[in-house]
Design a protein around this nucleic acid. Sequence first.
DNA 1: CTGGGGACGGGGCCC
DNA 2: AGGGCCCCGTCCCCA
Length: 259
Amino acid sequence: MSRPAPMSHGGDTTRAAPEPRSAPGGLWHCLAPAGYDTDKKQGLPPPPPDPAYAPGHEEYSDPESPQSSFSARYFNGEAAVTDSYSMDAFFITDGRSRRRSESQRRGSHRHSCPECGKTYATSSNLSRHKQTHRSLDSKMAKKCPTCGKVYVSMPALAMHVLTHDLKHKCEVCGKAFSRPWLLQGHMRSHTGEKPFGCAHCGKAFADRSNLRAHMQTHSAFKHFKCKQCEKTFALKSYLNKHYESACFKGSEHSCAIGN
DNA sequence: CTGGGGACGGGGCCC
DNA sequence: AGGGCCCCGTCCCCA
């Protein structure tokens, strides 16, 4: 691959923050091609039609997710244009979201976090989660011995440390990866396997994220709007690209992206 | 310059 | 604690 060294995308990667994991973007029925069980490990069946998981449903709604709230008009500071074309077809919750929703419903007999209200099956999982609420200044914060990045929790640090150990090597091209599923995904580029099919047009993808992005291109509505020129884009990445283009060159770039 | 797709890293959650 | 899985987001390339 000619990819450059990974960069610190998505802002401050040194902060293994207690960022609530949003459960958006599920494209369940679109992303799960026949014969591919996205919940293989958990053994959950595909989600049945359930109004509780319908987009826009309160329980499902995630303020950070463009997909999850269909009444929302603004995404993360970027203006989102009104969509008369329902995104329902594309942004139905996925298995994970569903699990979470179920968990929330079962909250009564689960272990819930006093700080954020998330619930867990075991006290052990809860205590692990609680670590994510620590501050980076906390004495309990851990530092990566390799690169010095600081993490608020052991699990986060453990995960990060793995990124320095590229022990999963591609036998075809020799590229190495820190985690087995990264190698798996990479192997598809050699085998041509594309297990993620678009239910809308049939196009297949090797990577689920790419299918997700592709699904957005089916939407006639462009949810991300440039604050400078009002131009709208279907994907946030297009908008970001736009910000880097002439529209913001040397001007209020940071202002536009920042909020 | 925009749209679209390929590839992949980081980190959270579950078991 | 570790492994597996998944999602989010980003970068790069090309039409």
